[in-house]
Design a protein around this nucleic acid. Structure first.
Lengths: 362, 362
DNA sequence: CTGAAAGCGCTTACAG
DNA sequence: CTGAAAGCGCTTACAG
């Protein structure tokens, strides 16, 4: 009996399994060329070296056989995996998920995929993530650093392209930052422009808190006759903020504007105010920070500082791509902007709890 | 001059770069063994075949040289990448992020890392994600399927281990599901037990909505003398819910209990009720669904149905690990539970808006 | 425009 | 307990 050998797979009917993989060699054989030529046809930089008709034959064969490039094999040869790692403390909050999502989508455009590592602010876990991603030979890392990372991790960071996100904990790796000081300045300035004379801040003192306090104070000190006090909450939760403002109200809170550390804290602040019978914005104007989903959902809708999370993600990827191609990169500082909604307006006339804004003084 | 050859790296002082990688061969040479033996020392299943003292020597050499396994190379040989892919529509919401986080942490325990693909409910993007992950040779996939996935994607799913998350769109791949019907049943049943006679539901009709409506109706029909109507909102946002309930109030809403599709919608419902002067829970009890962060932040704190997101993630990973080892897997249905907080209590006495609960009827 | 040889770093049988 | 050979699937110079 003569073997025709037209359908190689006939010998294993219905035995398609993942491991029964179609290789470049198979495609080459089917197209009647060498694997080298086949490889070239699939590489955009080399494809022009292959005769158009040959290329077509190769593509058709690949199509018919269901060929898919084996990326790990290519990675081994090229010393390039087309994978980047994302190391972040958490993703269950409205701030980071958007950034992570942006990064993933942006990376996809350059044909990169993202390995995700969640650290829960645990230094050991963070270090473990780095050890793991080095073994995976990722081409680079986008990293939201913990407060003071594991010293050995700091060494690893020197050995591969890393972009830091929002905090610069490592001096040697470039970072995508947001000008926190300016954000808080914008918030306070907005209230000043509306005519507020007594503006307070409700802050939480983490790594960004200090800069925000500074921005707030700069705006206050620039405006003649405006007083501003900074209060700090012991946590950054709704309830922390709510309790803090309850405390302020109990001890004689007379500001007409309140700049908050975050949208979440602004929510808590608004709740304390409203429960105490102070209307927002009629009696007190409130500003948040982050422009999260929440700011649209609150009542009144929240005026807030937007850190433009999408751009943070995009910029982080483009910075990383740059350092992958060997360029040295500087830090990138994004300028936040103010989103004005309904939680801020001119202050009520002095001495009176505000109703509708009167055009003249009493 | 005689070469002592103790420090191989001396020839390239200060030239450590990522590509200047220490290989198993280097370790073997430094330890005076063959690469085969070195390889065995690092493989838990083979390590016992290496003499303890040899093993020690190998480990020490590895330590000194800073050796790290090259996973892509190993993947090529073993046909196993120790990577799984996560394909989800989004991660900017309080529900999925927790699951994704759980999956990542659980996978890490088995030494797997996770490739993240975000699809934004876009079928093309979802299909592209699958094409990409196949080329990466991931060992398996955890997939939150879109409503009716790309037909070609459905074919791909047959070729590798896939576990579906929360929705079963593909008949051949096992799924981790939550008993939605039971969840809504629990919610309605809780109100019935508290003594409510008029209980409404505020639902949103997506893939889970239908089951939740059924569970709600079953609880109602089981209880003698209890009436229950189902209302549906046009969206699942806070404002959609708020407007829906405003509409109900305008057209004579007289239920004392309200089962909502989600925590977010419960928030909107509560806001509409409170704005209209109805107190929660004194006048109306409200129940949410999902037990998200939000349910702790609302005032009053929200009674809600917990889908145990952490367990969903854990179970998805363990199901996937099972199918990786060749076992055939059945679907896994998780039973949700009720978390009782402060937004539910016994109904006010008939005809009166409730104050403190009276012990007897008027 | 096309191909034969060599090698990326690892591990799997097969010998001893 | 240890090692020489072969190969996973791809691509990179080097020839022609």
């Amino acid at each position: 009996m003569i073997k025709r050998g037209i359908h190689v797979r006939d010998s294993r009917p219905n035995e398609r399994s993942k491991r029964d993989v179609v290789t470049l060699k198979d495609v080459a054989r089917a197209a009647g060329v060498s694997p080298i030529t086949a490889s070239r046809a699939f590489n955009p930089l080399q494809a022009h070296k292959v005769a158009p008709r040959t290329r077509e034959r190769i593509f058709r064969a690949a199509q018919e056989l269901g060929y898919r490039t084996n990326i790990p094999a290519r990675a081994l040869r090229q010393q390039r995996t087309y994978q980047i790692a994302l190391v972040v403390p958490y993703i269950s909050d409205s701030f980071l998920p958007d950034i992570v999502e942006g990064i993933q989508i942006e990376a996809t455009k350059s044909d990169y995929s993202c390995l995700l590592y969640v650290t829960h602010y645990d230094r050991e876990r963070e270090y473990a993530a780095f050890k793991s991603l080095m073994r995976k030979l990722v081409d680079g890392v986008i990293w939201f650093p913990s407060v003071s990372p594991h010293p050995e991790l700091m060494d690893l960071v020197r050995d591969l392209p890393v972009v830091q996100l929002l905090h610069k904990e490592h001096p040697d790796a470039p970072a995508v930052l947001v000008d926190q000081e300016h954000g808080a300045y914008l918030a306070a300035h907005h209230l000043i422009e509306l005519g507020h004379q007594h503006i307070d801040a409700l802050m939480y003192l983490d790594r960004h808190g200090g800069q925000r306090v500074k921005g707030f104070q700069r705006a206050i000190s620039e405006a003649a006759g405006v007083t501003g006090r900074v209060h700090t909450a012991s946590g950054s939760d709704v309830l922390d903020a709510q309790r803090a403002v309850e405390g302020l109200l109990a001890s004689g809170f007379f500001a007409t504007g309140l700049v908050c550390y975050s949208d979440v804290m602004a929510w808590g602040a608004m709740r304390a105010l409203q429960t105490a019978g102070r209307r927002v914005p009629d009696d007190v104007s409130v500003i948040g920070f982050d422009n999260t989903q929440l700011s649209e959902s609150l009542e009144p809708r929240l005026t807030t500082v937007d850190q433009s999370r999408l751009r943070i993600g995009e910029q982080a990827v483009s910075l990383l791509m740059k350092s992958l191609s060997g360029e040295t990169c500087d830090d990138l500082v994004i300028t936040p902007s103010l989103v004005v909604r309904s939680s801020t307006q001119a202050p009520p006339p002095a001495g009176k709890p505000g109703r509708l804004r009167p055009a003249t003084d009493p």
